[in-house]
Design a protein around this nucleic acid. Structure first.
Lengths: 139, 139
DNA sequence: ATTATTCCTATCGATTTAGTAGGAAAGACA
DNA sequence: TGTCTTTCCTACTAAATCGATAGGAATAAT
C-alpha cells in the first residue's frame, strides 16, 4: 500500500506545479484545497525541501516552490524520498542493496528473481514519468 | 516492502514445486531447509491451502502439495493471497476497488494516474510468471 | 512591534507485522 | 485399540510503523 505521506506528497507537488506563478505556495492553501491535515503536510513538505525537490521561503508571503521545472522532476526521485526504496526487497534494490541473511545464493532465489522483474518494470514507469505528466490535466 | 509472510510463502511454494514427487511435503522439512520459523510457516501454508493453491493431508506422512501444475500457478493469484491487492492504492485496484474519500475526480487525480501505470506494469509481470518460472533453477 | 509563515522536536493512539503458545482434530500404523 | 505424527485453529504478544497532533522557535514582511 501507498502511504498517506506519499499520496499527500504527490498531490501537493502536483498542486504546486499547477500553480506555477512566481510566488511560493503556502502549506495552508494546499492543505485546504487538497483536504490534507495541515500539520502533517507541513512535515511532508519539509522532507521534500530537505531532499532538494522543493525550495522554501519563510515568513509572510513565504511558502514552497519547485526547484526545477516540473518536466525535470522525475518520479524515481520523488518516490524514493517519499516512499523509500522502489524495490520490494533489499536484495534487488539499486540504492539500498542488502544481502538477505538466509539466502545462500541470490541468483537461485525465486523471490529475488520475481522481485527483480517487478522492480525493473516499476522503475521504467517512474523513470518515464515526470511531475509535468502528473500535473497535466488533459490526457 | 514485501512482507516476510509473502517471502516465506513464495519460498515454500518454490520448495514444494521443486520437490514434485507424489508424496506431500511436511512443514517441518520446508521450515528447516528454508530457515523459516515453523509455526509461522504453518499459518502461511494454511492460508495458501484455504485459498485453493495448496492441498493438504493430515496425520502421519501428511503435508502439503500443489493443487495444479507449477506452470498453471500464476503469480497474480499467489501474490493476491499472500500480499493482498496488487495495486498500491484502492482506487486503481481491479479486485478491491474503492473510491477515495477526498478525490472528487479520479481521472484528474495525479496519484491515480501514476499508480494506474504502476499497477499495469506490475500486473504484466505477475501474469506472465508462474511458479514453474520461479522454481526453474537454470536461467 | 505585529503578523504570517516555515521549521523543529516530541508525543501518541491505532494498526500491522512477525512471530509464539497451546492444544484440538485427523490420519497412519502397530 | 493406542500411539505417534501431522495439520488445523485460536489466542496472545512485542515491536515497529503510520498517521497524525501539540507546542513553540526561527525568520521574514510590513
Amino acid at each position: 500500500m501507498l502511504s498517506k505521506k506519499t499520496k499527500y506528497g504527490l498531490k501537493a507537488l502536483t498542486y504546486i506545479a499547477r500553480s506555477e506563478g512566481d510566488s511560493p505556495i503556502q502549506v495552508a492553501v494546499i492543505a485546504k484545497s487538497e483536504q490534507i491535515p495541515q500539520k502533517f503536510l507541513e512535515s511532508i513538505l519539509l522532507t521534500l525541501r530537505k531532499s532538494g525537490i522543493l525550495g522554501s521561503k519563510k515568513g509572510k508571503h513565504g511558502g514552497y516552490y519547485l526547484r526545477e521545472e516540473p518536466s525535470e522532476i522525475k518520479m524515481t526521485d520523488v518516490m524514493r524520498v517519499l516512499e523509500g526504496p522502489i524495490a520490494m526487497v533489499p536484495c534487488v534494490s539499486l540504492n539500498y542493496y542488502e544481502k538477505c541473511d538466509d539466502c545462500p545464493n541470490e541468483h537461485k532465489c525465486s523471490v529475488n528473481k520475481l522481485m527483480l522483474q517487478v522492480r525493473d518494470s516499476t522503475l521504467k514507469v517512474f523513470r518515464n514519468t515526470t511531475l509535468a505528466d502528473l500535473s497535466n490535466t488533459n490526457e
